[in-house]
């Protein structure tokens, strides 16, 4: 087991290099660079930047170097000092920008994940056990509704209802007075009053698909002979369900951790923009549009690292809960 983990960790190093290089090249592929975009933005507000200033900017940012040199400098900075470079647009170190956003992203993602599981798993089990009952049909209808309604539409509708009907403060994760305030209990409470809306919206769409998956998994397990064996022992139906078929039907969910982690950053972009959430996704989008290459590059690198770590974690967890994988 340890050998397996060690091997996987070693393999991650070349993969990360390959992906970071690819990401760097891809970000640079569109014509022009950050300075071009910057000049274009200024020109839009009728400010003219002369060639000299542009050249100075380019030199300062190191944009004149060949791409390989730029990549080498960037990687060296990361490896030697943990320095991911400076965001051109924000004029701040990239790492500071990312971490500030990551904390809230993490809170939001975990909250919506827990909400999703808490709703979807029991409903999925119920749907499977009471297959073709009225309840099953109702939940099936709900799931297809959740699957087919785009989440940004749901976000708009819920914002409207919350704002107009209940007069709630929607958009963002904090009220204005707490936005820049240091962490306190009051700020936490404020966060709680804001977070339910994005959590609901994010949970609804993933709940829907999860119900279907859980139902299908359970339907695979329920007719298995070991369930009958447990019933013949005299176990109550509830204990039987939770101990045997559910336990096995849950295994596939552990594999979803692999894509859950990278989803933290890049997922739910549209909802985050609509609701004006201070999470990572809008920042990434902005960085890509502005050709803010160190910021975008750091994000892509992070997504890739999280994907690799996520799949490693899910493999390890799967081996821990399923003896068939661990021992065979």
């Amino acid at each position: 087991m340890l050998k397996f983990i060690g091997k996987r960790l070693l393999w991650m190093i070349p993969s990360l290099f390959a992906v970071s290089f690819l990401a760097f090249v891809l970000i640079q592929l569109p014509p022009g660079d950050y300075v071009t975009t910057y000049i274009a933005t200024l020109a839009a507000s009728n400010e003219v930047v002369d060639q000299n200033t542009a050249a100075q900017l380019r030199e300062r940012f190191g944009l004149d170097d060949p791409m390989l040199v730029q990549y080498g400098k960037w990687m060296w900075g990361i490896l030697s000092r943990g320095d991911f470079g400076i965001s051109f647009e924000w004029q701040q170190p990239v790492s500071g920008l990312i971490w500030e956003r990551m904390a809230l992203t993490l809170v939001l993602a975990i909250a919506s994940l827990l909400a999703t599981w808490a709703i979807a798993l029991p409903i999925g089990v119920y749907s499977a056990v009471k297959k073709y009952s009225i309840g099953d049909y109702a939940f099936t209808a709900f799931s297809f509704f959740g699957l087919s309604v785009p989440s940004f539409l749901l976000a708009l509708v819920l914002m409207y209802v919350a704002a107009v009907e209940f007069g709630a403060d929607v958009g963002g994760l904090f009220s204005q007075e707490y936005e820049t305030a240091p962490w306190s209990i009051a700020k936490m409470v404020d966060l709680m009053t804001h977070i339910w809306l994005p959590v609901t919206i994010l949970a609804v769409s993933s709940t829907a698909s999860l119900i279907r998956v859980m139902r299908a998994n359970m339907l695979d397990e329920l007719p298995k002979p070991y369930v009958t064996t447990a019933r013949a022992k005299g176990l109550s139906e509830f204990r039987l369900l939770t101990k045997y078929p559910m336990r096995i039907a849950l295994n596939p969910f552990i594999s979803t951790i692999a894509w859950l982690l990278p989803n933290l950053i890049s997922g739910s972009v549209v909802v985050a923009i609509v609701l004006n959430l201070p999470t990572a996704a809008p920042l990434l989008l902005q960085a890509l549009m502005a050709q803010d290459m160190y910021l975008a590059g750091a994000f892509v690198l992070l997504i890739c690292a999280l994907t690799l770590i996520g799949s490693l974690i899910s493999d390890i967890l799967l081996a821990m809960v399923d003896p068939r994988i661990r021992l065979e």
Partner: peptide, 14 residues
């Protein structure tokens, strides 16, 4: 009661 398929009649993860 005991059943025909001794493999699938026992839970694989317990």
């Amino acid at each position: 009661m005991i059943f025909q398929e001794p493999m699938s009649s026992l839970s694989p993860v317990h």
